[in-house]
Simulated assay, not measured.
Amino acid sequence: MSAEISFFDLFLEASILVQFVMLTLLTFSIVCWAMIFQRRKILQSATQELKTFEDKFWSGADLSKLYSEISAKNHVQGIESLFVAGFKEFARLRKSHIDNPQIIVDGTHRAMRVALSREVDNLEKHLPFMATVGSISPYIGLFGTVWGIMNSFIALGSVKQATLQMVAPGIAEALIATAMGLFAAIPAVMAFNRFSHLVEKIENGYGNFMDEFSSILQRQSANEQNGK
């Protein structure tokens, strides 16, 4: 009775090219899983920070005190960076003695738009890599499978009588490459779709805040102008 062949044995018996394909896919999978855990933590934190800040913002807190409190932090990120950028630009333009409230609001909105673009770039970090892994891994695995099966049939050409026992190991080691390609691709695609949805949801929250904050500053600026 023949001994069972392990995955490690099949890997060692595979050709150099198939081994390289397997190692590449394994590396893709490890790196992708590390990014998945990292992105999951960051996006969950951004979602919670968005909710916490909106609760504080709409609780009636004084905007100047809120700005001073947030600016005192060593590192400002997420929706807080949008608020700081907007309020800082608003204060700067107001000190410039600009009489047109719309100019002040437009300048404030542009400052927040720049901050929004920077924050979204941070949230989307590593997502293109996941998309790439999800797209190319099955094809890389298929390439390793085709190469391994081709070598198996070439080797069979040198024998007079082929048996299943002779063919099976070569085909098995080749098919492992396809399995590893799917193993790397499926989690990457699922994570990319999930995280893309979360980023879009967070970005929409940032955009809504920008519009609402701009409206508040516009009313405040108009009231100050009418009070003169």
Rank of each mutant, 00 (worst) to 15 (best):
Ser137Pro: 02
Ile104Trp: 05
Ala185Pro: 05
Lys88Trp: 06
Leu17Pro: 00
Ile16Trp: 14
Ala222Cys: 00
Ala91Trp: 03
Val84Asp: 02
Pro187Trp: 12
Gly148Trp: 08
Phe87Thr: 04
Asn208Thr: 11
Leu66Asn: 04
Phe83Asn: 02
Phe7His: 09
Ala131Gly: 15
Ile79Ala: 12
Ile5Asp: 00
Ile36Lys: 13
Ala191Phe: 13
Gln161Pro: 01
Phe153Gln: 03
Trp147Met: 03
Lys51Glu: 13
Gln225Met: 11
Glu200Leu: 13
Arg194Ala: 15
Gln19Cys: 09
Ala115Lys: 06
Ser15Val: 02
Lys95Thr: 12
Ile202Trp: 08
Phe209Pro: 01
Leu50Tyr: 10
Tyr139Val: 00
Val199Cys: 13
Met112Lys: 05
Glu4Asp: 07
Ile103Glu: 13
Gly141Thr: 05
Val31Arg: 08
Glu224Thr: 07
Leu175His: 10
Ala168Leu: 07
Pro128Val: 06
His197Ser: 15
Phe7Met: 15
Gly141Phe: 04
Ala14Ser: 15
Ala34Tyr: 10
Asn208Arg: 14
Ser81Val: 05
Asn204Gln: 14
Ile216Met: 10
Glu13Ile: 11
Glu119Arg: 12
Ala168Cys: 02
Leu142Gln: 00
Ile176Val: 13
Pro169Arg: 06
Lys73Pro: 00
Gly148Asn: 07
Glu119Ile: 03
Ile140Thr: 01
Asn151Cys: 03
Phe7Asn: 04
Asn100Tyr: 02
Gly148Tyr: 10
Ile104Val: 09
Thr27Glu: 05
Phe129Ala: 08
Arg92Glu: 11
Gln218Ala: 11
Glu119Val: 07
Val133Ile: 12
Ala72Glu: 05
Ala46Gly: 06
Pro128Ala: 07
Ser45Val: 14
His197Lys: 15
Met180Phe: 15
Phe37His: 13
Leu23Met: 13
Val159Trp: 01
Arg219Tyr: 11
Ile70Glu: 06
Ala162Met: 00
Phe7Tyr: 11
Leu23Lys: 05
Gly86His: 12
Ser2Trp: 04
Glu200Gln: 13
Ile186Thr: 07
Phe192Ser: 13
Lys160Trp: 00
Cys32Phe: 06
Gly181Phe: 03
Leu10Ile: 10
Glu119Phe: 08
